[in-house]
Amino acid sequence: MGKIFVDVWDVTEKPLDAMAGLAYVTEMPNGAENLFVGTVRNHNFGKKVLGISYDVFVPLAKQSFLEVCQEAINKWGQELDLYVVHAQGRLDIGGVSIVIAVGSPHRDEAFKACRYIIEEIKHRAPVWKLEHYEDGDSEWSKGCELCSHNHVIDAHNIGESKAHIGENKAHAHD
């Protein structure tokens, strides 16, 4: 039986640590550890970005992380060790916004579960990005409408899947 750790960290007090995530999921029964690190890039839609402020509804966000992790376990096995930490607060370019680590006995499950978790979090977690631009302007990112339907991702074709939201509107994120 694997274990799950989810949290939201105020980055002004505690920066995210990818190696901590990796350490959490590195266990004796695991032969594969998959690590996803989201970082702030210096551009978006042609505008130069200086940083991003992350706003998070923490209790519901943590619950959504847990739900997504449980779904991954249901799909790819009880042995998975899972670690998800999301940033709250302002990050400069290169700052780490999310760390997802998955440990599994085998690599296929580790890759698929990690991909599933980041895609679902992007569509379901109550997190909002305020982008700060070089020209002094700031703008909230256009995001995904939340819906009452669960998103459908084909567990067997995760690499080619599209997330569906609302009335079958499909879209992709960077």
Partner: peptide, 27 residues
């Protein structure tokens, strides 16, 4: 609420604390 996204038909109660969730963009 802090624990769930509410259905549109969910009945509200006096002094209820709701949270509005605009389209999300985490990760």
């Amino acid at each position: 609420t802090e624990t769930s996204i509410l259905d549109e038909q969910h009945r509200l109660t006096e002094n209820m604390l709701l949270t509005i969730l605009p389209p999300v963009s985490g990760g």
